[in-house]
């Protein structure tokens, strides 16, 4: 048998291109009732918040009857010693939890994507993400039991327990964006650095870390928001005088909803929205 080499080798079938008609069929937006459903979702999600925000500017004690625009509830909220104290407590806890969780999450992400493969790597990933699927009330009670035990054994009290608990449940939230970023980054850049005589530490500091920074920042912001908003675990762990903003709000509404609470909640929403916008912006930078 005789053969001719190159002629047949290059004959690859043309990849089928998708027709516009098919694409239109797959487009969800073309389905009947799409915009009705979409609008229903948006209203259900955001109408309550709109109501909350609107009545925070109401010059009246009522949160159901509009009279006139006013800043008075914001002034009242800022003047309220208890609210200022709660806000400060929230910020302290969130700051510590963000720092601790982000560092731990970054190390975990590096170990599971860059380190040598180790036995139980899949298990480690599962364990890191577990807090996301365990009901928060269970985590809260478990943490409470553990901390009570430690307190009895050591006699040490203080806000440190709350910070530790927040750090722990923030880790998976910080972990996700860091790991996603690491998985997107090809190993080639780090190999290129090693190839150009960079020691492993300098490779990490000069190449891995700067490229990972947007992921770390995103993780930190997510952790910050999650810590700031937490109620259930904080409620269980917090000792006397360790009142965070959400806990204060919860306590205040037991005495009746006032527009002052609306004002504080609006500020919380504002901070969250700001952070989410920042997150989007950072992720846009990441993709460049």
């Amino acid at each position: 048998m005789a053969e001719i080499s190159a002629a047949a080798r290059d004959r690859t079938p043309m990849a089928g291109t998708r027709s516009p008609a098919r694409r239109r069929m797959r487009d969800l937006r073309a389905m009947p009732g799409f915009s009705a459903v979409a609008w229903a979702c948006i209203v259900a999600l955001y109408l309550p918040i709109v109501v909350l925000v609107v009545f925070s500017f109401n010059d009246n004690r009522s949160v159901v009857r509009w009279t006139e625009f006013s800043w008075r509830w914001y002034e009242a909220a800022f003047a309220n010693e208890a609210i200022r104290g709660a806000a400060w407590t929230s910020l302290k806890i969130a700051a510590v939890a963000t720092l601790g969780a982000t560092v731990a999450a970054t190390m975990a992400a590096l170990a599971t994507t860059r380190g040598p493969r180790f036995r139980g790597r899949a298990l480690a990933l599962g364990i890191v993400n577990q807090p996301l699927v365990i009901p928060e009330i269970v985590t809260a009670i478990a943490t409470l039991s553990l901390f009570s035990l430690i307190k009895r054994l050591t006699g040490v009290n203080g806000i440190g327990y709350l910070m530790l608990a927040h750090t722990a449940f923030c880790i998976p939230f910080a972990f996700m964006p860091v790991r996603a970023r690491l998985e997107d980054m090809t190993l080639t850049l780090e190999q290129a650095a090693a190839d150009l005589y960079a020691t492993p530490w300098r490779t990490f500091r000069l190449v891995t870390l700067p490229l990972l920074a947007p992921g770390i920042l995103a993780g930190a912001m997510l952790a910050f928001v999650v810590s700031l908003d937490d109620v259930i675990i904080t409620l269980m762990i917090a000792g006397p005088g360790e009142t965070t903003l959400p806990i204060y709000i919860l306590g205040a509404i037991r005495r009746g909803i006032t527009p002052e609470i609306n004002a504080v909640s609006t500020i919380l929403v504002g901070v969250s929205v700001l952070l989410v916008l920042l997150l989007f912006w950072v992720q846009r930078q990441m993709r460049k």
Binding site: A193, D195, T199, P210, L211
Partner: peptide, 29 residues
């Protein structure tokens, strides 16, 4: 290890450091 071998590589997809300038890339080694 790679950083102790006096050989350098030109990678298929170039693997230039995106957070550095051209000159910084060239001067890295």
């Amino acid at each position: 290890p790679p950083h102790r071998r006096p050989v350098n590589t030109v990678f298929q997809n170039y693997a230039l450091f995106p957070h550095m300038t051209v000159a910084e890339n060239v001067g890295f080694g």
